[in-house]
Amino acid sequence: MVIVDRIVIVIVLAGTLVTLAGTIGLLRLPDFYTRLHATGKCDTLGTGLILAGLIIFHFVHYSSTPLVPIKLLILIIFVFVANPTATHAIVKAAHRTGVRPWHLGEKRR
């Protein structure tokens, strides 16, 4: 049990750190498109890792309700499909309305 708890802590912590890095990227990167690189990827993996940790935790400690891990798994699948789709939709909208991509050496926007 203690070992499982430690594994869960490591996974959830990793997810949190990935999300944190994504947020730092959102603040540091220079323009619209590059910021979406940070959020589109890091949020997906961060959420996925946190939910994966929760699945293991619930599966071990509350095995009387096996439906909850399955629901969380469905949630992970949904996030992994919806997140890149939403990112693509935002980027496409920006591209169509003529947001210019940042190039090396320009001022940050």
């Binding site: 890095a21 990167l29 323009d31």
Partner: peptide
């Protein structure tokens, strides 16, 4: 991909060169 992006984001000089 995430490791790559995190490395670029946290790197002090941010080694990025965006292109289409």
């Amino acid at each position: 991909a995430n490791i790559d992006v995190i490395r670029r984001v946290l790197h002090p000089r941010m080694p990025i060169a965006p292109c289409l």
